[in-house]
Design a protein around this nucleic acid. Structure first.
Lengths: 96, 96
DNA sequence: GTTTAGGATAACATATGTGTTATCATTTTT
DNA sequence: AAAAATGATAACACATATGTTATCCTAAAC
């Protein structure tokens, strides 16, 4: 529950105990941000992206407002039309 | 060993019609391959990885045998203890 | 040959994501 | 001001992932 907190709360919060938790939060926040950014950069509305991706607008809205953590196939359906994909990389770069 | 090499068959298969489909297949196959590879490189059994990740062994087995497409949080729970994470990258590099 | 360990799988319950349809609130456009 | 577009959300059905527990099969170890 309690999925509706602000991003900063997630990032700076101390209830991210394990590295797994922190990495999960970092990734999901970054993911959502990049997704929204990419969609808006293309000037697409959620409804238009829904058309392109095959994922329905309510599902996209739930993802963008972090009400759900998508499955990887759904995620890719959305990312690819936006010009992105996912990559498995070594856990090293702790940027910023 | 190398019983997972039939993944290549998936990659080269022609029943991937749309770019979205192909990218989805590519990613999922690469993901599973890298996951298995990383686990075995660490000399971990599925049961041991289950302990480390908090994801139960049957779930890991289902993922590795591609009986399910995981959610991103489950995926990260497994990848991080293996030393990996996910990254959103531009859809350009069509390697090999 | 018996034991041990590892991966796969079965069956069921539960959790959660997604589809569907519709609507609301807000902003943008005319 | 009115209309249109946009993101969010509600409610429900359905699909699927995951947990739980147990077992099977195979191969390796002894």
């Amino acid at each position: 529950m309690e999925k509706h907190r602000m991003f900063d709360d997630y990032i700076n919060d101390d209830n991210c105990v394990t590295p797994e938790e922190r990495e999960k939060i970092n990734f999901e926040v970054a993911l959502i941000g990049k997704m929204i950014e990419a969609r808006e950069a293309k000037g697409l509305s959620q409804r238009e992206l829904a058309e392109l991706s095959g994922v329905k607008q309510p599902a996209i809205a739930r993802m963008e407002s972090m009400k759900s953590t998508p499955q990887i196939d759904t995620l890719l359906k959305i990312l690819v039309p936006l010009g992105y994909t996912l990559e498995i990389v070594p856990l090293q770069k702790k940027p910023m």
